[in-house]
Structure formats: C-alpha cells, structure tokens
C-alpha cells in the first residue's frame, strides 16, 4: 500500500495586503496553507524581507552594516544603498530618535526624513515608531501626510493609541495600519475588532502579535502565531486573518548574546557574527510559525533569509 500524500489546504485564506506603489509594491499574505507548506498548495506571496534603517543611525555601530553605507552621508543615500541589497523587499524606516525619553525629535522633522527616504527609493516603505504610544500617534499622522500617495504600513497601533493612529493613518490617509499586541491571541483579536469598528477595513490591517529573540520567551511568540494561523485558516476567523509582520532586528541585536564584546566572552567569538546568527535564527523561526514579513538589520541576514525563503517557496 503506497503512502497517501494528501495535500491539506484550507478553505479560508490569510488576507492579501498590498504595501507600496508601482512595480515594486508588495503583497503580504494571501495563502491558504500553514507557513511554508507549499506541498499543500502554492504560496503566491512568499514571506517578505524588510531592511531596517533608523533615523539615528544606531545600526552603524556594527561594522558589516557600516560597510554597506560607505560613502552615504544622508539617510536618503543610505536608503539608496539599502535598495541595492539583493533580497530586500521593503525598507523599514524606524524613528528611534522620536522617543520623548531620548532625542525627542519633532514629528515635523521625522516627516521630512520620511520624505527624503521615500524620494530616494522606489521600494515599499514600512514606518516604525519610537514605541511611545502618545508620540507615535502624532508622528504617524505627520508621516502619513508627508507620504500620502505611497501606501505605507505603520507599525504600530496599540491598545493605547489605536483610535488616534487608526483614524489618522487608516481613515484620513488610507494608509496601512499595523496592529501590535503583546503575545496573546485574544489581545490580537480584540485590537483587530476595535480597528474594524473604527472603520479601518480588514484589507488595510497587518498585525504584529509580539516578537522576541529566540531564547527570550520565543515560545510565547511561536504559540501565539501558530494559534492565530490555526484560527484564521481552520476556523475561518475573519478577525484574525491579517498577515503578520515581525520586527526582528532590535530584538535579535538587543540580547546579551549579540551585545557582549569578544573581550568579555572570548570563547563566544566575534559579536557581529553572533548578532547575525541570532537574527537569522529568530527570523526563520518567526517565518516558520507564521510571519508574512520580517524586518532585519544586517545585510548578511538579509542575504541568507531571502535565499531561504526563495528556496522554500519557489
């Protein structure tokens, strides 16, 4: 009796959400199978790879990243260089400098930076805030206005600021809203429901149900994403069918394994390679459990994760 290999696609699918404009616009989601299960049905929109650029240039402390940007004086020039990296699907512009507890850059300044980056690249743009709910709401509104015709995804609207962000970004400017919750399927669902009640259409929402570096509570991230995909696909739960976007960069490069210097831990070897391995491992794990897009910081990680995705889905 031969093995019966039965494809097991679902009757429901993840929403297809398009970000960016023109030839390079990208579509997240759309699949009716579990992550990377191409043997069940083809995955027409493979997971996308984003490259993170910060307004403060904090990533330039890593030699391999600084090397990419050699000769680039402005953030626009950095965006141009980032675009040449093979495997990059979108630019993720992070306004780390807007944090009121840090440099506290004004929303207007940030909007100008966003315009400069958008002028330099034709890749889709994802905007990451500083994490301060109040400031992000103001910041996103200005940036949404500055990039009005660019179909940008904003990360993120949270429980504390979803009304302001949803109304400004999603309703007034028709941009894409990223809904962020902290590793709990019910919180993720609740925020999606609240955003739809506000009037934001499902096809304009992507979600970030939490992220963590591997080894740092990643099991919660993994199980939350697995349960979201299971509910979306097998139970056709329309309030959980949004594609998942996971910022990996700051998680992976923020843990001890990536930070501690080689002088302090000689047997661990160079810190940069540890950051790369941490980023690759976290990104691939996130994709395996359901991310439709990951945001990375190191060119080497981009190279590996993009060829991984290509090999797994083509």
């Amino acid at each position: 009796m031969p093995f019966k290999s039965t494809p097991q696609p679902f009757n429901a699918a993840i929403n297809a959400v398009t970000v960016g404009v023109g030839d390079k616009a990208m579509t997240l989601g759309g699949e009716n199978v579990l992550p990377l299960y191409t043997f069940d049905a083809p995955i027409s929109n493979p997971p996308k790879i984003g490259f993170e650029i910060t307004d403060t240039g904090l990533e330039l402390a890593v030699p391999g990243i600084a090397a990419l940007y050699e000769g680039a004086a402005t953030i626009g020039e950095r965006a141009k260089k980032a675009e040449t990296l093979e495997g990059v699907d979108f630019i993720s512009l992070k306004f780390a400098g807007a944090d009121p507890n840090g440099e506290n850059k004004s929303a207007e300044d940030c909007a100008a930076v966003a315009k400069e980056v958008a002028g330099a690249t034709s890749l889709p743009i994802v905007v990451e805030g500083c994490g301060n709910a109040e400031k992000d709401a103001v910041l996103f509104e200005k940036v949404a206005d500055a990039l009005a015709d660019k179909n940008v995804l904003f990360l993120s609207a949270k429980e504390e600021n979803y009304k302001a962000v949803g109304a400004a970004v999603g309703l007034a400017y028709g941009q894409k809203v990223g809904a962020e919750s902290s590793v709990d399927i019910n919180l993720a669902k609740q925020l999606n429901v609240l955003l739809s009640q506000l009037g934001v259409k499902n096809e304009n929402i992507a979600i970030n149900p939490g992220s963590a570096a591997v080894g740092y509570g990643f099991e919660y991230v993994a199980s939350t994403m697995e349960r979201i995909k299971a509910a979306a696909l097998s139970q056709n739960d329309t309030s959980l069918q949004m594609p998942i976007v996971t910022p990996i960069a700051s998680e992976a490069f923020g843990v001890k394994e990536a930070i501690v210097s080689e002088e302090d831990m000689p047997e661990w070897g160079p810190a940069e390679q540890r950051g790369i391995d941490m980023e690759i491992s976290t990104a691939v794990s996130a994709i395996a459990y359901g991310s439709n897009a990951v945001i990375l910081r190191h060119p080497e990680s981009v190279k590996t994760v993009s060829s991984f995705v290509k090999a797994m889905t083509e």
Partner: peptide
C-alpha cells in the same frame, strides 16, 4: 548562515 537558518 544557511545552516543556522535550516537548523532553526
């Protein structure tokens, strides 16, 4: 790097 990816 790809082995890190696949092992994960």
């Amino acid at each position: 790097n790809m082995q890190t990816a696949l092992a994960s």
